[in-house]
Structure formats: structure tokens, C-alpha cells
Design a protein around this nucleic acid. Structure first.
Length: 405
RNA sequence: GUGGGUGUAGCUCAGUCGGUUAGAGCACUAGAUUGUGGUUCUGGGGGUCGUGGGUUCGAGACCCAUCACCCACCCCA
């Protein structure tokens, strides 16, 4: 038997209903916030991710589905969504056009990791990117939008917040941090030794207990922000307070993608195991110029759909449409004609096997139909169809000529 | 990539020390006054015991490999 590839799942039936429900809720909310859908290719030039996500990140370093195509292009399946949207933004010269551009997207992402709960090799994200807005109000908008989506789905969360500084304060902070790390050099773990050289900020969220103990006295990002970053961060907190969105400051929250600056946030759930991040995002004002665009401020977030699936509280299912069945082979012909008429405006599911009335009622029940419509010997002689409303428990015999004329 | 656990019917799982025809519940299907659903009762169908090797007179059970899933590390959404 041929099986799907490791970490790549089919989504079907009830699971897909959840998936679809999520998409409709999230898309509706994104549109209400003034965002427009954008679809970008799953396959992109490898250089796009090397330059945006960053070669120091694990995603680019070891998790990409990368290969040479028949035209000898170095390509890979997208490991995340932002890079492609930024590429499209620049390619279509929206950076030069100026103004505000707000996009939302959803689709599969690919990372070659060891699968576990909440971590697949092909997984789905819903994300949002906003270009051209410098104001920290847009950062707040992102967080409010995620909060709105999670609330609409009945999902509880904790929000972690941090500021990573900008090109003015970050480099200086980085120097301070490296000096600090060197002062406790011999005691840090091998990973941190590596991080110190490639991306020193990442030592902060090292999970090694000994490292964490050492870093309690490390200089904090938040104590080293320049005035501009500090003001924005304070404003952001005020806005969130005003909107009753609870948050916790996490000075060790360092997003794993290299392009973030200033606002960084992460929504986590305590109910889905160790892969607990359900949404993450932040500002990335420098990324557009890294990808050859005109410098443009930008913020965004992405949300992992699979991690949300089991948390979604679905609305009560309602009975809808028709179940049609024959009690006699000859009745199948008018049944099919009726189904065709119903489908012009409603759902109709036909059972082809002639069965007892009881079996048909059960069948209608099983697919959660509102109406059970049956033609048997009696109806055939009277040229009519028997219809029972399974909610109102009323039934009627309708002449075929009158049925949905 | 590292460490640990699990794999028996469509689903959830029993299966004793290795022993003869592999079980239950749910689901499916058919009946229970011959045309009235969601309850009950009775019957029925459905299994290469994840896959491939090995040990043994005999393997669902023991051993090895492999694949998949789960948990933790790591990473991230």
C-alpha cells in the first residue's frame, strides 16, 4: 500500500469541516480589518528564503525541501509565508507605488522536521502582512486581529510580548550581550557557543537550564531600547490594556526568523502539548529592502492551523437539505429527477439502493438531512413523493408535478 | 538530527506462561405486526495481528530490521 509521505497528512470529512470553518472565520475577520487575499506560489527560488528568513535560522539551515529543478534552478517549497508575499509586493512594484497594502493568505508550508504532535512536514498557516504603516497602532491591530480570530473560535491563549529594538539600538545591545556571553563562556552549552557567533540574541531562549541560570543577569533587550522603540512599546502596551487584551512581557521571546525587529509577539496554548505556539508575528521594517525593495515598514503574523484544529469549538450542526430514497427500483427514476430539481437551490443526497422506509429514515438521520423524501409503490401509483420534515415531524404527499416547479 | 514508547476489525481496545477456529464495545447491515428516524433485542458481514526476516513442533505474543504514529529534546506556527 502506498502511504502519504511522513509528516504529510490528508484532511478529510469532519476534520476538513473544521479546517474550512477556521478559514471562513479567519478570512471574514481579516476582510473586516481591510485585508485582501493574496496567493503566492508554493515553490520559490531558494535565495528568497536565504535572504529573508536568514541562513542562521534552523528553517533555512536544515529544514527546507530544496532541490534543483529541470531548468537547473535552485528552488524550494516555501517553509513560511512572509517571504513570498514580500517578494510579490516588491515584484509588482507596490513599494514604489506607495500607500498602504494589506494582505492575508493561507496555504501549505513545508519544513523537513521530525514530526510530532503539532508539528508536521506539510502544515497550513493563515497569515497576514501589512506594508507601508509605520505606526505601532498597526502592530496593535495585528494582535487584536489574532485575538479576534481566537475568540471567535472559542480558543483560550496566553500572549507573550517583547520588543527586539531597531537598527539603532539592536546592534549596540548585541555587542553588550556578546560581551556578557563571553564573560560566562566556559559554562554555556554547545548550542549557545554556536549561537554566540551566528545570532547571539538566540541564546536568550535557550532551553538549557544551566544556560538560563547564567542568563538571568544578562542585559535585557527591553532595558536597552532607544527612545523611539521604547515609546512604541509603551504605546502598544497602552493600546492592549485599553482593549482588554492580557499579555505577559517575555524578554526572552526571540523569534526564530531573522527579519523581525521592534514588536515581537507569540500566542501560546497550554492545551496542545509541547508545540504550543499557535500564532506568532511582529514587525519587519528592514525586510523589504533586504529583498531589493524600497524601504517600507511592515508588520505581520502567521497562525498554525493544525495546532488550532482540536481547540476549535464548532457551532452546533443544523439539519439541512434532502435525503432521497426509493423503496422500489422503479421509483429511482422520479427520485433522481426530484434530486436534480432540489439541487438548483438546496442540497440533495440520493440513496440508490431500494430500502425499507425505516432504513431510509435512518439514512436521512445519519447524514443530518432536514427532509427525508421517499417514493415507494403507493407514491408511484399516485405519481407523488412522500416528504417528511425531520425537525417539525410533519409529513406530506406531494404530487410530482408540483414538486419544485 | 538524538532519546524513549506504541502498532490486533472502519474506530476504541482485550488477548494469561508461546498452544489448536483471534475477541468485545461502538460503527455498518438485516430482521423483531408486511410503510415511520435518533431507544431496545436478535442475527450477519468485516482481520495477511503495521511490514519483512528469524527462533520454535507451534508466534498476535519472543528476537532483529524496517515503516508509521505518540512523548520528550531541538525547532517553530
Amino acid at each position: 500500500m502506498i502511504q502519504s509521505l511522513r509528516g504529510m497528512n490528508d484532511i478529510l470529512s469532519e476534520e476538513y469541516e473544521r479546517f474550512e470553518y477556521f478559514l471562513s472565520v479567519a478570512s471574514t475577520i481579516a476582510k473586516r480589518y481591510g485585508f485582501h487575499y493574496i496567493e503566492t506560489p508554493l515553490l520559490e527560488e531558494t535565495a528568497l528564503f536565504k535572504r529573508s528568513v536568514g541562513e542562521s535560522s534552523d528553517i533555512v539551515g536544515k529544514e527546507m525541501y530544496q532541490f534543483i529543478d529541470k531548468g537547473e534552478n535552485d528552488v524550494c517549497l516555501r517553509p513560511e509565508g512572509t517571504a513570498g508575499v514580500v517578494r510579490a509586493f516588491v515584484q509588482h512594484k507596490l513599494d514604489k507605488k506607495g500607500g498602504i497594502h494589506r494582505f492575508y493568505y493561507h496555504g501549505p508550508m513545508f519544513r523537513y522536521e521530525r514530526p510530532q504532535k503539532g508539528r508536521l512536514r506539510e502544515f497550513h498557516q493563515f497569515g497576514v502582512e501589512s506594508f507601508g504603516v509605520d505606526s505601532v497602532y498597526e502592530d496593535a491591530l495585528m494582535i487584536m486581529m489574532v485575538a479576534d480570530i481566537l475568540k471567535a473560535l472559542g480558543i483560550g491563549y496566553r500572549l507573550k510580548l517583547n520588543s527586539l529594538g531597531d537598527q539603532h539600538c539592536m546592534p549596540e545591545y548585541r555587542k553588550k550581550l556578546v560581551t556578557f556571553i563571553e564573560s560566562c563562556d566556559d559554562a554555556i552549552c554547545g548550542d549557545c557557543e554556536r549561537r554566540k557567533l551566528i545570532n547571539p540574541i538566540r541564546v536568550l531562549d535557550c532551553k538549557n537550564e544551566q544556560c538560563q541560570n547564567l542568563y538571568t543577569n544578562a542585559p535585557k533587550l527591553l532595558d536597552n531600547l532607544c527612545d523611539g522603540c521604547q515609546n512604541d512599546f509603551d504605546t502598544l502596551k497602552t493600546i492592549l490594556d485599553q482593549h482588554n487584551i492580557a499579555y505577559e512581557i517575555d524578554t526572552n521571546l526571540v523569534r526564530g526568523l531573522d527579519y523581525y525587529s521592534k514588536t515581537a509577539f507569540e500566542f501560546v496554548s497550554d492545551n496542545i502539548g509541547s508545540q504550543s505556539a499557535i500564532a506568532g508575528g511582529g514587525r519587519y521594517d528592514r525586510l523589504i529592502e533586504f529583498l531589493d525593495g524600497k524601504p517600507t515598514p511592515a508588520v505581520g503574523f502567521a497562525l498554525g492551523i493544525e495546532r488550532l484544529m482540536e481547540l476549535i469549538i464548532m457551532p452546533e450542526p443544523v439539519r439541512e437539505g434532502y435525503y432521497l430514497g426509493a423503496m422500489d427500483v422503479a421509483a429511482l427514476i422520479p427520485i433522481l429527477l426530484c434530486a436534480e430539481k432540489i439541487r438548483r437551490s438546496d442540497k440533495a443526497v440520493v440513496e440508490y439502493e431500494p430500502r425499507s422506509l425505516k432504513a431510509h429514515l435512518k439514512g436521512a438521520d445519519r447524514i443530518n438531512a432536514r427532509y427525508c423524501a421517499v417514493i415507494g409503490e403507493n407514491e408511484l401509483t399516485q405519481n407523488s413523493i412522500w416528504v417528511k420534515d425531520l425537525v417539525e415531524k410533519t409529513e406530506s404527499l406531494i404530487p410530482l408535478n408540483d414538486f419544485f416547479v
